[in-house]
Simulated scan of single mutants.
Amino acid sequence: MSPAALPLGRVAGVPVRLRPSWFLVAGALVLLFGPQVARIFPELGALAYLVALGYAGALLLSVLIHELAHALVAAGLGWPPTAVELTLWGGHTEFMVRGATPGRSVAVAMAGPATNLLAAGAGWLLFELAGLTGVAALLLWAVIVLNLLVGLFNALPGLPLDGGRLVESAVWAATGDQDRGTLAAGWAGRILAILLLVALAIWSAAVPERSLLLVVLAVMMAFVLWQGASAAVRGARLRLARREHRESEDQDGQR
């Protein structure tokens, strides 16, 4: 855990901390959505940017329930969670893995996206039944959309996203080798990063009045995806090389 992380308390005994870098995301969301809120509710004036800060709060809530879902399912499977940390690009949950299997890995990984999708559904139901209007309706809709986006994005099939564990576990189950599964999932993550940039280029060409801030955020997200996927590929290759070296030495010793 980073010593610079801000403690937010404990949930089910698991410490939750916030990296100061998260405030950069909060600021970006305020700058991105503040003008939109002002156009929708011109009577708010400068308070529109305070409402836009609610978008940052909605994103923080979405990421928090996502990570807590990982932690609680891991604990239920005998993998004690040690911390939940909310960061610049989302968050991560640390836990001690014991007796890993493809099925357990998938269960822990997909608990996060599934919880976000359930939260989006519950929010939509509340939106339909409560009949909210004005700023309250806008903020609830932000919670719905952000949970939907966090859930769907993290379910994409490539590391370091949760959906990458599906790819890893499928190859792991087929070959009996987790490292080969990690290697495949890392390459899938690299492909996702490239596809994100291609989609961004197409969108930028089709929408001349696009937000420059949104473009910058998307490029940074693609970079983070590539970095995480590449780290997974390098780690898997290193472990495979070490294992092959040990097996080669064992064979030489038997001769």
Rank of each mutant, 00 (worst) to 15 (best):
I194R: 01
P42H: 12
V37Q: 03
A56E: 05
L197N: 03
L117P: 01
T101G: 01
A185K: 14
P35M: 08
H66K: 08
V135W: 04
G123W: 08
L18H: 06
Y55S: 04
Q254F: 03
L8V: 06
D179Y: 11
P3N: 06
G164Y: 14
G13S: 07
V97M: 10
A170H: 01
A28R: 00
H66V: 13
G90D: 04
A28S: 06
G186D: 05
A236Y: 15
S2F: 11
G134C: 13
A170G: 01
R190Y: 00
W89E: 02
E209C: 00
G78D: 05
S230L: 12
A232N: 12
V171C: 05
I65M: 13
F95W: 13
L161M: 12
G27K: 07
V97E: 12
A229F: 08
S211M: 12
A114Y: 10
G158Y: 10
G123Q: 06
S105G: 12
F41W: 11
F23S: 03
A142W: 13
R210H: 11
T133A: 14
G27M: 15
G253I: 04
A107L: 15
E43Q: 09
A71V: 03
R237S: 04
S62L: 06
G181I: 10
P160M: 13
G189R: 05
V150I: 14
Q36N: 02
G163H: 04
L139W: 09
A5M: 07
V25P: 00
V30K: 10
A206Y: 03
L129R: 11
A142T: 13
L140A: 11
L64E: 06
N116L: 01
Q251C: 00
I194G: 00
G76Y: 07
F95V: 02
L161A: 06
A142S: 11
G90S: 03
L118V: 15
L214R: 13
P7D: 07
G112Q: 09
